[in-house]
Design a binder for these strands. Structure first.
Lengths: 252, 252
DNA sequence: AAGTGGTCTAGACCACATC
DNA sequence: ATGTGGTCTAGACCACTTA
């Protein structure tokens, strides 16, 4: 249509903006149906591809989700608060409660597809755990679900010689989890550091977490240290960004 | 083309996967040029829209960036570490150093487009600062840049009656910033809580932070409390997700 | 059966970058 | 001048949902 005005925004973007404003203003709210491709074609007199492009903007922003055969809908957001400090307080795991209970106020997290294996430490793991690159580590991978919704993927690495022969090497680590077992070995975690990155998920992460398009993930790398400052665990977590709010508190 | 095989992945996705693998394997690395639309059309025998769709997948994932008139390139990632605790240690702001110096190891952050205004507290601000919804707050907005690259947008809210007549109401708050001024008022921040969300940016945020498509933002909400647990500031920050790593540490 | 979104083709004109 | 990505049209067939 040879864009009559000089450098006006493209049509698909203007259509997207119209819809975005309708959503932001509350005119359309969580779960409401957004005008579909056919409706936008009629309403704005554009070709199908242009209407689609407008919708794809909102979908890639995570504001809307498309449901095949049904329509496009406004997407809600009601996340879970994950509290950095309270979650890892000593009372929790030292009394046999799983750490994951802390977030969810008694709603149980389910653990999924647990795999345990021993391997040579990858470079970044060796660095975090203060090992040499050839050293062996135990790797524990699992997925967490809440009400059947997958929420997070987690991979823990521990020095293999430290946990050899303990239940940490078995799928079920017993009451209190890994940290309780480390405490029994005299290697109780006393100090934690967490690094948080955000990015778009890989295709693998998208399927494992059932993410809809436009959903970013949080990547949390946590190192657990004993009171002697020995690094005893690296936990790499990938969280569904639409499902979590991380909370930290600290003193000046 | 009537998709010959049954439920094989769509062509554009297979093309995207090919490219993704080439990137992940290091065959293509940061800044390298990715095969463009014309190249993909020839190589895979598809229409232009299909080649474009394949590239748009990578762009929306933040793996690649398109440069008009030039080509599509692999995108690098070299973030800045923002340390939750060290940044806000009392020594920093109590000795007149700006908080922002802490992240960057002496590289200076520049402040941009500062606006100060007084207004009625929005609902979420009133809640965070423990005010009534009609109460007045001072709002300070600004943008931070590092080496001319915009890194973060920040909006602070403070109870208006608390800071009336101080330099907090002026664009330049003086040495040590807001927190030093609060300390002079006997309201020194002693405790902080931060909440972190991740989402895709709004169009406004995308332009203000010069974000390329596929870049999520971190949204940090920080409340500063005095030692008497009075909430004296709410700071809402929007960080370029490709530019930051947040770090926190704490004890069990 | 009708409507919806998902994929794909085959064209077109534009603005911009590089040579 | 040529090639690149950006936008747009006008069709087509498919799989799925809803009624």
């Amino acid at each position: 249509m040879l864009t009559p005005e000089n450098d006006s925004p493209p049509v698909y973007r203007e259509i997207a903006d119209t819809l975005r404003i309708a959503i932001a203003s509350g005119e359309l709210s969580d779960g409401d149906r957004i005008p579909g491709e056919n409706e936008l074609m009629k309403r704005h007199g554009v070709a199908r591809a242009t209407a689609r492009q407008a919708l794809s903007v909102l979908i890639n922003e995570g504001i809307a989700v498309a449901v095949r055969g049904s329509g496009v809908y406004v997407r809600g957001f009601s996340p879970l608060v994950r509290h950095g400090r309270r979650r890892l307080s000593k009372e929790l795991w030292s009394t046999g409660r799983a750490i994951w209970g802390a977030d969810t106020a008694e709603r149980p997290f389910a653990t999924d597809s647990v795999t345990v294996s021993e391997m040579r430490a990858p470079a970044h793991v060796a660095r975090a755990l203060d090992l040499d690159e050839g050293d062996r580590v135990l790797r524990r991978r699992r997925r967490y679900r809440l009400d059947d919704r997958p929420m997070q993927l987690a991979t823990s690495y521990l020095p293999a010689e430290l946990v050899a022969g303990t239940s940490v090497t078995r799928p079920d680590t017993g009451p209190g989890g890994i940290y309780a077992r480390l405490a029994e070995l005299g290697q109780a975690p006393a100090h934690f550091t967490e690094e948080i990155r955000v990015r778009m998920p890989s295709p693998d992460e998208r399927t494992k977490l059932s993410l809809s398009p436009g959903t970013p993930v949080m990547h949390v790398m946590r190192v657990a240290l004993t009171k002697e400052h020995r690094a005893v665990e690296l936990n790499e977590m990938t969280l569904d960004g639409s499902a979590y709010v991380l909370q930290y508190d600290f003193d000046a």
